[in-house]
Design a protein around this nucleic acid. Structure first.
Length: 448
RNA sequence: GUGCCCGUAGUUUAAUGGUAAAACUUCGGCUUGUGGAGCCGAUAUCGAGAGUUCAAUUCUCUCCGGGCACCCCA
């Protein structure tokens, strides 16, 4: 262990980002930022409020919240010991920290439900692939403090709207209900019994799962298990009266909102805090699938990409140490997978303004004054582009041309001395000399 | 975590058992008060380390990183 660590440091000289973690910049950064702005706008409209929690939490928040027996906790969590001796973990998801914040700040006393949106990097020590990173971004929206089915529906609706606004096509949502403490226990017992009967045919992995988390056997990819699963008892038929009603209502809301869903009886989710409603959202892009398929195996479609998921987690509060249960439901979106998709709309952040003026300076006297002239334009909210490091007029004009900016301002030595600038129309190559104190007025006219 | 493929300038690619070629980009120089210009020049410890060899970027191994399929998930 120690040996490896040393050789690692030596070998890459520390000159690369850690595996599965990358630098976001320029276009890609804006793609993320644009998405977050749009998602926030939609959430705000529906009454969700912002919250930002620490990237590190006490480890127990996750071990007891998400639960042992889940891959996230058992294999994928980044943990560390502080100098004070506490065990912290980089958050592998947003839900448990959000619930911790709710309890810590006594939000039970606020009008319920309390609705939050929450986004930022999360960390899982998984083997990286495209669309799967060790540091990735999730956008979550959650309604805490209500067990009403309309909150499930609202969360799903808002989440789906965000995905649609981002350009997602062919969305499909798989949904299921795994019951509450009344019926879930009965169901798990029944399911366990069923698997015990067939234990001789179960693969080793699934025998292990039977001990730790039998629900997970349901979405096993093992061929043998799949066959056994066909006859397995399904959670929906074990739902108690209130859970049945709740699930039925959720589905009614979805129908009313014309959200296509597919009831997937094997859908149980990898996190053990879920109760009642669970769902996963998939999308596929046929172009990507076709090209990738023909290049590699020549086989048909790749698996559809899961871009969002969530569900209800009515008992999470108590699992992480709350005194009372807090019924809650949430929807979480994998932002990296959206931003990388061919269908992504490349939502542009609001701070990015398309420049209508290109600023050119010529000669040392002009360069000296250029920053103050630009500051005048900035304060007047006129977006410009410039390349102050350039000296030659033609190269600056060339850049303006390249960026297809309609007008340029030229500040030469002569103009600098006379407190004026030249405004040139790139389309017809006409230009006017304008006094600096008249400049804003002149530009205003131009934009009419 | 398992299996397979991959790794040459910032990018895309080339060649080779004798320390690497080109295009584009970038930067610098010359020229240049008016439209993507031109010319000159610079930039690679061939992902890292070890081994085989007189000699390795080229062969072998390990590691690092990327991709694909599992696992799992967003």
């Amino acid at each position: 262990m120690k040996k490896q660590k040393n050789s690692k440091e030596k070998k890459n000289n520390g000159f690369s980002s850690p595996r599965g973690m990358r630098d976001l910049m320029d276009e890609e950064y804006y793609n993320f930022q644009g998405f977050f702005e749009k998602a926030q706008e939609i959430c705000s409209y529906y009454g969700f409020k912002p919250i930002d929690t620490p990237i590190l939490e006490h480890k127990e928040i996750f071990t007891s919240g998400i639960g042992k027996g889940t891959d996230i906790v058992d294999k994928e969590m980044y943990t560390l010991k502080t100098k004070g001796g506490d065990y912290l973990a980089l958050r592998p998801e947003h839900t448990a920290p959000l619930m911790r914040a709710y309890i810590e700040h006594g939000m039970q006393t606020l009008p319920q439900p309390v609705m939050f949106y929450h986004y930022g990097p999360v960390f899982r020590h998984d083997k990286p692939q495209r669309g799967r990173y060790r540091q990735f971004w999730q956008f979550d929206l959650d309604a805490l403090g209500s067990d009403k089915s309309i909150m499930d529906a609202l969360s799903i609706k808002v989440g789906m709207s965000i995905l649609e606004e981002a350009g997602a096509e062919k969305l499909s949502i798989d949904i299921n209900s795994i019951g509450d403490k009344e019926c879930r226990g009965v169901y798990i017992k029944e399911l366990t019994n069923y698997y015990r009967k067939h234990i001789s045919k179960l693969p080793v992995i699934d025998r292990k799962r039977l001990k730790i988390n039998p629900l997970r056997i349901l979405d096993s990819k093992e061929e043998k298990t799949r066959i056994i699963n066909e006859q397995a008892p399904d959670s929906v038929s074990f739902l108690c009266t209130s859970c049945k009603k709740h699930f039925k209502e959720v589905l009614e809301y979805l129908e009313e909102m014309e959200i296509n869903y597919n009831i997937n009886k094997n859908l149980v989710r990898g996190l053990s805090y879920y109760t009642r409603t669970v769902f996963e959202v998939y999308t596929r892009s046929e172009e990507e699938d076709l090209s990738a398929a023909s290049l590699n195996t020549g086989q048909a479609d790749k698996a559809p990409v899961q871009i969002a998921s969530g569900g209800r987690y009515d008992y999470l509060a108590r699992q992480i140490g709350g005194k009372k249960d807090v019924p809650a439901v949430g929807f979480s979106i994998g932002v990296d997978r959206i931003v990388e998709s061919s269908w992504y709309k490349r939502l542009s952040p609001r701070i990015l303004k398309k420049p209508k003026i290109y600023f050119i300076q010529l000669g040392p006297e002009a360069k000296l004054k250029s920053l103050s002239v630009i500051e005048i334009l900035r304060k007047a909210h006129i977006p410009i582009a410039q390349s102050l490091s350039r000296d030659s007029l033609s190269s600056q004009l060339a850049i303006a041309e390249k960026l297809s900016i309609p007008h340029v301002i030229i500040l030469g030595v002569k103009e600098a001395l006379e407190n004026s600038v030249i405004v040139r129309d790139m389309a017809n190559r006409s230009q006017d000399t304008i006094k600096l104190n008249k400049l804003l007025e002149y530009l205003k006219e131009l934009n009419k």
